[in-house]
Design a binder for these strands. Structure first.
Lengths: 249, 249
DNA sequence: CAGTGGTCTAGACCACCAA
DNA sequence: TGGTGGTCTAGACCACTGC
């Protein structure tokens, strides 16, 4: 019978998380300097930092270089799929996970181009070949300055001739309107979700530490003939988002 | 114009990931010992380990103490919500994310008890108070030995008097059958998804490293009168699962 | 300018694995 | 029994913050 000896840094991380939940450290407050914390827990600095890195991974702490470690408390946004049933749903207020719907996002970094290439899985799912042209629209969204979401939308160029509808002011509904005008209105969608380590590019775009996971959602829209017309890739900060789907069983 | 000086360990992690994708290291193969890798990349051992820890977080590598680091390649399982539309969906084969549906899960660690307490968010979402009794069914699922999913199902005790239907052989359909027999068949469901750091308990139950995120899905089922009748909490290894939802727009 | 976090180093000990 | 990964230590340098 060997006892399971929990590593010090996991124990300390749990204690710290507890201390924050118990209100020993309040939201926005700065933690004591790392050497001091290390001493307090009777451990070396490197071990202390390993514990702190876990809390920075899930957004409990925010480390500011040269300044300190701050308690962060971000109620996540709620991203709703399956909007058709939203109104028939009984208790939109009674949820398991907490979230905040009242805040609204700011949009920046919107681009729209016509490319002759896209990631292989995207092309396959759109039924395109390697040399087909796609319309690519990228945009980033912020919440009170902090970037939380990065969106890439792919549409076969044969479906949408002009990029004029994709620019910033046309917004997210621009593509759907254009597809509808082209007689290819989306009527069905599939979303595939995975949770993974961010690329270095995503780290800087979303300003998340490299050990924080991101949520990647791929929404493929189909027209009435069940042909794919659009793929929207959304990469979210996992600390800032909760996903929500309503469906009939 | 300050250049963005990428930390060594991120660069090395990216190089290693590239080397694995390029087939320099094959699936199941053991990597060179860590001191050797450190020397090869001209870096200290601790820095090398920081890079390796990133690849172990997302399941690219599996570290076996006393043995070595092994390249892992696990095609994720696909967890489908919104099953009602599954058949009307056009291209079940054309997906953006890769997955493997052919494998089937093994069940173990099934328990069923009547408790007089549950996590506060669960009780709230079920419309119960702190002292109400709930029926709790827990089960764990393995894929070729490796645990991938941990499920807790909560039902108000007033809805289901007996635990007999909850045991292993009754399976997942036992609860639904019992609810249907009680005239409270679920007709609508909401799933809330979040992605977070695992608890130490979840680390051991799912045998994931503490820096690997887990996917937590909370499915609340409602009867025809839109009353909540059941909450199923599923905690998944984020490296082993892809979520999939189909809905009309 | 002093204080802070982010990174990196060069060791060490232990538990575990395989031969 | 020798090699391996997991953890821990006690330093160091740098970039950045805020005064």
């Amino acid at each position: 019978m060997t006892e399971a000896p929990e590593p010090r840094y996991l124990d300390i991380a749990a204690r710290l998380r507890q201390a924050i939940e118990n209100g020993r450290y309040h939201t926005g407050e700065r933690l004591p300097p790392e050497p001091e914390l290390a001493k307090e827990h009777g451990v070396a600095l490197m071990t202390m930092r390993k514990a702190l890195n876990l809390l920075k991974a899930d957004g409990t702490l925010l480390g500011r270089k040269g300044s300190g470690n701050y308690v962060q408390s971000i109620p996540p946004l709620r991203r709703r799929g399956a909007t058709r049933l939203r109104l028939t749903q009984p208790d939109n207020t009674m949820t398991v996970l907490a979230s905040d719907d009242t805040r609204s996002l700011e949009t920046d970094h919107v681009t729209a181009t016509v490319q002759t290439g896209a990631p292989a899985p995207i092309l396959r799912a759109l039924g395109l070949s390697e040399h087909d042209e796609v319309l690519l629209r990228t945009s980033r969204y912020r919440l009170t300055g902090r970037p939380v979401k990065y969106v890439r939308t792919y549409v076969p160029h044969t479906l949408l001739a002009s990029t004029s509808l994709l620019h910033s002011d046309a917004g997210d509904d621009g593509i759907r309107a254009a597809l509808t005008a082209a007689g290819r209105a989306p009527v069905l969608a599939r979303e595939e979700i995975c949770c993974r380590i961010p690329t270095t590019e995503e780290c800087s775009h979303l300003s998340v530490p490299p050990n924080r996971f991101v949520i990647a959602a791929y929404r493929t829209s189909f027209d009435a003939d069940h042909r794919p017309v659009e793929i929207e890739e959304t990469v979210m900060d996992s600390a800032s988002y909760v996903l929500d789907y309503v469906y009939e069983v």
